[in-house]
Design a protein around this nucleic acid. Structure first.
Lengths: 243, 243
DNA sequence: TGACACCAATCTGTGCAGGCATAAAAATAA
DNA sequence: TTATTTTTATGCCTGCACAGATTGGTGTCA
């Protein structure tokens, strides 16, 4: 996938910065990187430019490439999310994402019930039916993929592109929950019912019911995985950073 | 501000792509840009790299730099948000952002009541008191700045960096509402009360009350500005884009 | 004749090497 | 302390070689 050379450099540096192997506040010199990674200046420069946009570094004249602290990272950047999920603070990233989806998905379901195009409503009905089937059968692999598709569909059907774009990290959460063994042997009957009800409500243009049932799903999902970040410290960003 | 050359190129191209002056599907050649903008290859390449990360373009060999359609844009990128807010589809961007903040801010208030550090609670109390003062006095300029600070504080006090990072676009919404004359001559008494109640609830560690009052604020804010996007079409992204 | 596979030409981004200009930190002088 | 010079790393530019994808042509076979 990351076939291009500069993408490798981005990956190399980004993952090391997020994991903490390169401590914040460090100053890297472009010339060092050139010979350490055996690539040319242009590659370094483009990679640094990308990392700067992620908020990981900040290159200034006469001083070099400064590694920034976590509060400067762009928490919506796909790279950053991926690197954080692969780091020791995976829990903190999962918490942030989960709180975000708990906030967003009920609203997405409500909107979807109002504005979703017909074909999406139909596919939602189909998916939820399949979820019932494979869920009761205990086929967790298939269920997981359907679950991911279900939530991606609801987010997209809201017609809000900011919601739709959360499909990838939400999928990551769902995968994480299964991989870490936090799923029951087979999905709870209630959960299946709620998914079905969300699909029904969207299909029948019943925003209130769609929201209500999605909220139920969110409550359960939160209870199932909140143990993952019990001891993760929270990050309080300076609110004056922007103004 | 954008002092560096490549930043200018990013700005130039990005704004034109988002505004539609450069139609999606167009193919730009790096060599063209070099002489049209009178900058060197390295500048072009770094700019293109940044734009590619925004999802605006997609450069491939033998074909050139392809301008992508809106569904590929990264809706959380600060550049993209700014360019969209300056474009003809400002309404659509405001709608997406408003729906997002309506989803997020009540949860942020709830979390803040649980985890906010003491000094943030104190500042919230201070700000809401000043909002009362200048609001009743009809000083909309000062009120706006306080309002922006208030919501930025709540988002930051949630301890969720994804929430905190929404402070900038939320500020943009609030500014937009005032600039477009959608604010009443002086803030409604209810609104002042709700802000005060949110601050009180967070200060007293009462998550339910914090959420409830923030929800009230959100309902009103939605009613006040939803007229802005009455006729904006919604964008339904293909949910399979990710999987 | 027409369909298909294969090969070569060509075009464009990618990567490399080295040079000069410039801004900001650090050292020096006033 | 304040002003000036020196240092030094990034910003920017250019020429060159390479890689990969598209295109068109060529030849084979049906």
């Amino acid at each position: 996938m990351a076939t291009s050379l500069h993408a490798h450099v981005v990956e190399h540096l980004g993952s090391r910065i997020v994991s903490g192997q390169i401590p914040r506040g460090s100053i890297i010199l472009a010339a060092e990187l050139e010979q350490k990674l055996q690539v040319s200046r242009s590659v370094i420069r483009e990679a640094v430019r990308v990392l700067a946009q992620c908020g990981l570094v900040n290159s200034t004249k006469r001083v070099g490439i400064r590694v920034l602290s976590a509060e400067h990272w762009n928490p919506y950047d796909d790279h950053v999310i991926r690197w954080r999920l692969a780091s020791d603070h995976k829990g903190a990233q999962l918490r942030s994402l989960t709180e975000l989806r708990i906030s967003v998905e009920p609203m997405a379901a409500e909107l979807a019930a109002e504005v979703a195009p017909e074909e999406m409503r139909k596919e939602l009905m189909l998916i939820s039916a399949q979820m019932n089937h494979y869920g009761r059968q205990g086929d967790l692999r298939r269920f997981l993929e359907l679950d991911i598709r279900f939530h991606a569909l609801v987010l997209a059907a809201s017609g809000n592109e900011m919601f739709a774009n959360l499909a990838t990290p939400v999928g990551a959460i769902l995968r994480g929950r299964t991989e870490l063994g936090l799923m029951p042997e087979r999905p709870h009957e209630e959960a299946l019912l709620w998914h079905q009800s969300v699909a029904d409500a969207i299909s029948n243009s019943d925003p209130a019911a769609a929201r209500r049932n999605m909220e139920s799903i969110m409550r359960r999902t939160h209870n199932e995985i909140s143990s993952l970040w019990e001891n993760e410290p929270r990050l309080f960003v300076d609110p004056g950073k922007t103004s």
